[in-house]
Nucleic acid binder design. Sequence first.
DNA 1: GGGCGTAGTTTTGTAGGATAATTGTGCGGA
DNA 2: TCCGCACAATTATCCTACAAAACTACGCCC
Lengths: 246, 246
Amino acid sequence: MQQRRTTAGRTVRPASRVHARLAAAIGELILNGTYPPGSLLPNEAEWGRRFNASRTAVREAIKTLNGKGLLVSRPKIGSRVEPRERWNVLDRDVLAWHRAAMDEATFLRSLQEVRRILEPGVAVLAAARRSASQLQALESALAAMRSAPSPSEMVKADVEFHLRLLAAANNELLAPFAIIIEQALAAMFDYTTRHTAHPEVVLPLHTHVVKAIAAQSQERARQAMTALLDDTDAILAGQRGARPRA
Amino acid sequence: MQQRRTTAGRTVRPASRVHARLAAAIGELILNGTYPPGSLLPNEAEWGRRFNASRTAVREAIKTLNGKGLLVSRPKIGSRVEPRERWNVLDRDVLAWHRAAMDEATFLRSLQEVRRILEPGVAVLAAARRSASQLQALESALAAMRSAPSPSEMVKADVEFHLRLLAAANNELLAPFAIIIEQALAAMFDYTTRHTAHPEVVLPLHTHVVKAIAAQSQERARQAMTALLDDTDAILAGQRGARPRA
DNA sequence: GGGCGTAGTTTTGTAGGATAATTGTGCGGA
DNA sequence: TCCGCACAATTATCCTACAAAACTACGCCC
């Protein structure tokens, strides 16, 4: 951690979001099991020594983790790691630390499982309630997928498509799942080269979904989305020639 | 905000989690639209004046909200409210503030919608993967529902049942939904007196779910859970004589 | 000797003041 | 007109001192 001297001679550190780095560092230690649920974290002074930061910065980092449900702090006791079911695993940061802490394939499978549960239902809601402009947004995302010049552009448009579908469901309690879709598709892209390399299959599947939603047919929307996810699952299972990069 | 004097004569407030109260107060102001997404919050000194708290406490409160995705703070700019899709609406506190800020019936409908999407899929996963002890936990929760001496005990056991079902799905990314189930059932209990007053219907529906999961039949589990949710929906729709409590 | 109350100790919670870093804004000059 | 620089406002960090809370342990009283 770089330091420098002021004119007054006091040793200070640049004020560049120390607490954010602390929060990330401590968060990863919790996610990777160094401090399991129920265990007690070192006290604030100790963290300060370990990371060469002031107690104030440590406290703010801990408050951030507090807000994410990873910790509870009490006087005289210290900060205790909460049970996993209290964690906000759908939080952007928490999910990122999670990903860093676990096996890539397992992580991806968990994400995909949630998508399988969720997205057919989302498609049904979207079919029932999408507005005209939401339908249009969906169609333009599909068009972007069609004309994507590169695989990475294709993935980007793909993410956009699914996010807009989620938005079209018009239930804001579903919003946190956006992060799952983003991470799942990004992880797919990292994990298999094959994923983006078969637009001839993916594009018709997406088109079916849009058509069903345009027609406001809930059952067809569900089936189309299920078929789409079946395809993704097949890739993950390695049955369509997926090859892990690494 | 109560104050008192120390021997030194300085005016202080009891150190009883001021930052938590501040976080709740500011959180509610955001949720209820006083500070809409994209808007700028008053600066830290102003909050301090308004709530008669030190800047330290204000900062910790803001860091908590930061952790929940409601805010981002940057030097010179201040704290800006994030767009809604970044909010951790599944966070315990955020959901509570949410509930306080919106119409009870609408809130309940949103929750119930998510349950409809989710729980059939959860039942499928549980049927496929539940361990013997998880099945046993499910059965004992059902037994507790059967022998519940009062409506409120019944609801408690009901919540427990659904939480254990969620746990039996063995996918920790689903954990955040626990809060939705808890809130939905609690809100139902507040909103309709009828909900807990028909064990003769509810108990068999739950029993079917357990039987399907015991038999590891995924399709039956899905259907049983769907039937259970249909019943809840009917109550919400007022078709089974639900009467709002006022 | 045992139980209960109380003082002590440790740790987080709050306060307040000082300095550094960051970035929008406006002014001036090329 | 546009670019760059000084300025100002605000958060970021640090420090120190106390206050509050809760576990510990001791001692007093019965």
